[in-house]
Design a protein around this nucleic acid. Structure first.
Lengths: 101, 101
DNA sequence: CCTTTGTTTCGTTATCTTACGAAATACAAT
DNA sequence: ATTGTATTTCGTAAGATAACGAAACAAAGG
C-alpha cells in the first residue's frame, strides 16, 4: 500500500513556523507587548528589565522572532529598535483565523 | 540594577504551550483535518495514509497534541479514535484571539 | 490458540532549543 | 584616546524534538 509522498501545503508550513515562533512564553510576552503598545516598537533593554531571563537569552528569542519574520530590528546605536513586522503578523492572524474557522 | 524576578503569566505559558503543539506542519494538518470534519474525530490510520511520515512518527505527533490537551484518544480496539478536545481548543482560539487584538 | 490488524513503544541518531556568563562590537560622551 | 552603555555573538552544556525501523501489544477472527 503505497504511502502518499504529498508534502505539506505552504500554508501549513508557514503556520507551523509562526506557531513555533510563539512557542515560548518570553516570545509570547514580546509580541503581546508590541501589540499592546500603539507604536508597536521597543528597545531590547526596556523589555529585558521585565523578564526573568539573561540578556543574551532575550537576544536569542529576539533572533527567533526576527527569523520567523514577526519583528524587525532597526539599529539606532547603541540601541536597537524592534518593531512588529506588520505584513507577516497580519498573515499570522489570517492563518490562525482560518484554522480556527 | 535588580532584574525583575516576575515569571510569565499563566496565560502566556498556556498560549506558548498551545503554540508549541501547533509548531509542526503535521500537527497543523491534523488539527485542520479535525476542524474541517464535522464529527471532529478520526482514526490514526486514516490520516497516516495521507502524510509523508512513518506511522511511529505520526504516533509521536499525536502524543504531542494529546499532551498539550488539544486532542484525546478513545480506544476502540484495534482502532484508536482521536477527537478534538473542545474545551482546550476553544481556549486556544480565545488566547490567540486575545493576542491578535 | 494462533494469526492478523492497527497502533504504540523502544532504541537510536541527528539536530534544535534554551539557558548562562564571558567576550566582542559599536557608537557616544568625556 | 579612554570609558561607558546597549546589545549581540561566542562557547558550552543540558535537555527536547523529529525521524526511522523493529519489536511489542491488545483485541478480533479464524
Amino acid at each position: 500500500m503505497p504511502k502518499s509522498t504529498a508534502l505539506f501545503t505552504e500554508q501549513e508550513i508557514r503556520l507551523a513556523r509562526y506557531a513555533k515562533a510563539l512557542s515560548h512564553p518570553a516570545r509570547v510576552y514580546i509580541m503581546e507587548y508590541l501589540v499592546k503598545n500603539a507604536n508597536r516598537c521597543f528597545y531590547s533593554g526596556t523589555i529585558s528589565d521585565e523578564l526573568p531571563i539573561a540578556r543574551s537569552t532575550l537576544s536569542q528569542h529576539l533572533s527567533a522572532l526576527k527569523d520567523a519574520g514577526l519583528i524587525k530590528g532597526e539599529i539606532n546605536s547603541p540601541f536597537i529598535r524592534y518593531c512588529i513586522q506588520q505584513d507577516n503578523w497580519d498573515e499570522t492572524k489570517q492563518l490562525f483565523t482560518n484554522l480556527f474557522v
